[in-house]
Simulated assay, not measured.
Amino acid sequence: METASTGKKSALSGTKCRLGLEMSLGLIRVTRFIYWMVARNALLVNHRLFELGIYSDDLCLLCGMHNETHTHLFQECQYSKMITAGTVALVKLQIPSSNTLVWIQTRMWSSTKKDVVFCAFMNAHYSIWMQRNRSRVYNQIL
């Protein structure tokens, strides 16, 4: 990358670019892993931790009103509905609230459009999970 004043390449520009790319790729991997865990109902939500005897209650950390199951956390919780509604508005499509992944895969779209819509929903689920974890760490219900 050339600097404006000298027209010479900065010695650090390549390093910053590569570091940023590696960080981006790492976040993409984590996001995909979380979505994979969501799709398999494998995340340790409060209901599962309660059943295992690890926690004393199984209330949702985002709303504090219902049991935190996979279905509640990613489909029924008011916070999740707000995130999903924002994602739907972003991709400008009418998308069903359940079986989103199957619905996306069965559309007669180009692979690029499927990838974009899938990434939007993958990031929405990741955001929900991360906000849920922040609520646990800071002991705050939204």
Rank of each mutant, 00 (worst) to 15 (best):
F50R: 05
H66Y: 11
D58P: 01
R18I: 14
L52P: 00
R29N: 13
L62K: 03
V38K: 05
R40Y: 03
F33R: 08
L21G: 11
L21T: 11
M65L: 15
T31A: 11
I28H: 12
V38N: 01
R18D: 12
R48M: 07
V45F: 00
M37C: 05
R40G: 03
I54Y: 02
L21N: 13
R18K: 14
N67E: 10
R18Q: 15
R40I: 02
A39P: 00
G53E: 07
R32K: 13
N46T: 02
G26W: 11
I34M: 02
E22N: 12
T31S: 10
L52M: 08
H47C: 06
I54V: 07
G20W: 13
G64E: 04
R18H: 13
L62W: 05
L44K: 08
M65S: 15
C63Q: 02
K16T: 11
F50V: 03
S56R: 13
R40V: 02
G26K: 10
L43C: 06
Y55S: 08
D57Q: 04
S24V: 09
E68H: 02
R18E: 14
N67G: 06
C63R: 00
L61G: 13
F50K: 06
L62Q: 04
E51M: 08
C17G: 14
I28K: 15
Y35V: 07
S24N: 13
L25Q: 15
W36G: 09
L52W: 09
V38C: 02
F33D: 08
L52R: 12
G53T: 04
E51Y: 06
I34V: 13
M65I: 11
D58L: 03
C17Q: 15
M23F: 12
C60Q: 00
L21A: 14
L49D: 04
A39H: 06
H66K: 11
V45K: 01
R29P: 08
Y55W: 06
F33E: 09
V38H: 01
E68Y: 01
E68G: 00
L62A: 06
I54M: 01
R18N: 14
L43D: 04
H47A: 10
E22H: 11
L52G: 02
L62V: 03
L27Q: 12
L43T: 03
L25M: 12
S56E: 09
L61A: 05
G20T: 09
R29E: 12
L25T: 09
C60R: 00
R29G: 10
G64W: 07
C60S: 00
C17K: 15
